[in-house]
């Protein structure tokens, strides 16, 4: 068991053992002069998010709450996706009643091979970061376990405009207030630049990402 040995070497290197209390006090002294908050109009922040999502090949539309169901239906038709999956707990008012969605039941979760048979997944989201074009998902109702937004080839994500922040620090402040669920930051569809630094959309995660900004 090397635990004691490693810790002893660290303490020797640092001139003695440290306590969490002293560490915490010193942590508060770390300068953080970077930007925390937005100095931007709401509309500008939303436009920034749309712009940056598009920059990384996501398709984005904005819709009033009452129009979301129609928008979702149109997007699915445009993409030619019919066999759709969603987690339990998605707000039914946002869904087109005439499109069937299979629901992943937490009591009886679908096997991965079954998830792989779906043409797409629809989820809600916890928040979005305008400056980086990022959507944040957590393992909660309406967003589901992580495999759901990963295995299908197409992800349609609903983002409430009230949950859009401008900066990463604002997002981390919000995430610090919610219980520590598994959290995934998604910035555009899966991509790689491993071959000659040419950005290619879609390797293993969903190759197509559509976002509906739900005005609320």
């Amino acid at each position: 068991m090397s635990r004691a040995g490693v810790l002893a070497k660290i303490r020797a290197a640092n001139g003695g053992a440290s306590t969490l209390a002293t560490a915490e006090a010193a942590w508060g002294e770390i300068p953080r002069a970077y930007r925390r908050t937005a100095e931007m109009e709401r509309e500008e922040i939303l436009e920034m998010l749309e712009d940056r999502l598009r920059d990384y090949d996501a398709h984005v539309v904005r819709a009033a709450r009452a129009d979301v169901a129609d928008t979702v239906a149109l997007m699915l038709r445009t993409r030619g996706r019919t066999r759709m999956l969603m987690p339990e707990g998605v707000d039914q008012e946002l869904l087109p009643s005439w499109v069937g969605f299979a629901v992943d039941d937490p009591g009886e979760p679908l096997p991965f091979l079954a998830i792989d048979k779906f043409e797409g997944v629809l989820t809600e989201s916890t928040l979005a970061i305008a400056e980086t074009g990022t959507i944040v998902l957590q393992t909660v109702a309406g967003q589901g376990r992580r495999a759901l937004s990963l295995i299908p080839d197409y992800h349609l994500c609903l983002v409430r405009t009230s949950a859009v922040v401008r900066t990463v620090p604002e997002a981390m402040d919000l995430l610090a207030t919610v219980p520590a669920f598994a959290t995934t930051f998604i910035s555009g569809p899966s991509a790689t630049a491993d071959i000659e630094m040419t950005r290619i959309k879609g390797v293993h995660g969903p190759r197509f990402l559509d976002v509906v900004l739900v005005i609320d």
């Binding site: 598994a182 959290t183 995934t184 910035s187 569809p189």
Partner: peptide, 13 residues
């Protein structure tokens, strides 16, 4: 990678 944010970050417990 010269991206504002890379496509996926996972933080889990």
């Amino acid at each position: 990678t010269g991206e504002r944010m890379n496509p996926y970050n996972s933080i889990w417990n």
